[in-house]
Amino acid sequence: MNRAKSSGATASVTGFSARTSSALSHHMVVARESLASLLATPGASVMTWLVIGIALALPAFLYLMLVNVGEVSQGWEGKPRISLYLREGTSVIEGNRLTLELQQKEDVMSAIFISPDQALVEFQRLSGFGDVLNTLDNNPLPGVIEIESANRDLVALRLQAKGLAERAEVDTVELDLEWLERLMAMLSFAQRLVAALGFVLALGVLLVIGNTTRLAIENRRSEIEIIKLVGGTDSFVRRPFLYLGLWYGLGGAIFSWVLVQASLIFLADPVEVLAQSYHNDFSLTGLGPVMSLQILGGGVTLGIVGALLAVGRHLKEIEPR
């Protein structure tokens, strides 16, 4: 089998295309082998996947909640509402008359009168406190006029609200825009918080995958030594561990996706009831295809980067002796 070689350097030279195709097929082989090695110890692998899954699910879920809250407030944005709570004893006729009068005004887009009786019926239907209300002798709810203002400017809105508050029939005026502004401020604060939490948890995932990879490297120390001894390049030695990281990351991302989806299903019904009580046919936004891909891509990236960090640190230490 051994033909004499005039120069040893040519001994292992193969055609370029043959090399690339075999390098590709080696990638496939390594990818399959590293996945098989994970599945060979299902207990340990599932534990790692769960840890990564929970760490990824938490920020993903919180982010999703922020998206949803943002969406709820979106419905009100640009349509500032003013609620006029009428004085006790204001009759339905008076209320209707005032509503009609307000509808004529230029700075009022629309005005709707909700009489105490209507309010009571609605409250009983949606709040779930119907029984409590039945024990009361008289209706505690005031009449309300819901105004949609034509003003967009906060100062003008405040002036308008102040003017409305001076009317004899009006008890209190509530400007919906104020809490909306506070909500927006809170949302942007919460977004920062979620981003910071996501960063910390991503770091945690990196450490988990890095440490798991370090153990895998330690377990295969003698194999690495032998591969280096017979001329394996660093990238050849690195390859199985990077695939290991990839599978850890991908598996963890799939777990986190399932966790988030399960939480959404768990929350969907109460949220719908809550939304209905606000006259809103709002329903929870789930993980769309884009966010799903983001989670999977994020998991894979963290997996590979974590493995790279571990490999970079520990592979250099292993040299054949």
Binding site: A18, S22, E225, I226, L229, F236
Partner: peptide, 24 residues
């Protein structure tokens, strides 16, 4: 010897060829 004891004889001998990128 420096053999890999969790690999078959074939895999042990094939290692330098796989590293060098030979086709299956």
């Amino acid at each position: 010897h420096q053999l890999l004891f969790d690999r078959t004889v074939f895999d042990n001998v094939a290692l330098p060829l796989i590293i060098a990128g030979f086709k299956a």
